[in-house]
């Protein structure tokens, strides 16, 4: 991992001077390779961890079953002794000794395995943290790289307008003017909308016969009829 650490130092140095030079393509390749290596190592470690865990579980089961057998034979030894069958008891005791030595062997194996599992887990953790760090560093490089691509296009922009002394001031004035126009247009739009909605209201009111009532021909005939009557 110290190689990675050294690499990071080199990259950091590169980034600070990046204004002058494009990020070293080799450095990116090395970093990308390291990221791939880390992620492969993690995958492999996870695979062997699964296998080890499987073996560990198997061993534990064997040890447990041996312990049951031993307890069983111990009870039988006591029974044989109580029955006065000492020779048989010795035979059973010998069997117990065999089983116990087998159990001890498996137990040693199990302990070693458990240690290996712990170590693998630790390794995965370290590699993962390295991987994340590597990815972050790479993202920094990629960011700088992408930004640099805009530089050429930006420089072109500036070069074409450099002749005019007050480029920024002129553009700013134009942008502000357009902004103001846009605001004015929006205001005009609001005013129009309000006008329309208020004339809509007048129309609705007159339709409902509220407010300024329009005189119809029928109203006039009616009025004239009434006038004649009186």
């Amino acid at each position: 991992m110290s190689i990675l650490k050294d690499l990071f130092k080199a990259i950091k140095g590169g980034v600070s001077e990046v204004g002058e030079s494009v990020v070293d393509a080799n450095l990116v390749r090395i970093l990308e390779q390291d990221i791939r290596d880390d992620s492969n190592a993690i995958n492999k470690a996870k695979q062997s961890l699964t296998q080890l865990k499987g073996t560990e579980i198997g061993l534990k089961r064997k040890i447990d079953s041996l312990a049951t057998d031993i307890a069983d034979y111990e009870a039988k030894t006591v029974e044989a002794l109580e029955a006065g069958k000492e020779e048989l008891a010795i035979q059973v005791a010998e069997k117990i000794a065999d089983l116990e030595s087998e159990k001890d062997m498996l137990f040693t194996e199990h302990t070693a395995l458990a240690k290996e599992v712990v170590q693998l887990n630790k390794m995965i953790k370290t590699r993962s943290s390295n991987l994340e760090k590597g990815k972050r560093e790479l993202e920094k490089i990629k960011t700088v790289e992408q930004l640099q691509k805009t530089t050429a296009s930006i420089n072109k922009n500036f070069a074409s307008t450099k002749s005019s002394g007050n480029r920024v001031a002129d553009s700013l004035a134009r942008a502000k003017k357009k902004q103001q126009e846009w605001k004015d247009n929006q205001k005009a739009g609001d005013w129009m909308e309000e006008e329309e909605s208020s004339s809509d209201l007048d129309k609705k009111l007159s339709e409902e016969g509220i407010g300024g009532k329009k005189t119809s021909a029928n109203d006039i005939i009616e009025r004239l009829k009434n006038k004649n009557k009186s």
């Binding site: 960011t143 790289e145 553009s171 700013l172 942008a175 357009k178 902004q179």
Partner: peptide, 11 residues
Amino acid sequence: NDEFSIHVVMT
């Protein structure tokens, strides 16, 4: 603001 355009890039 159509005087100052924005360059968009992606990582």
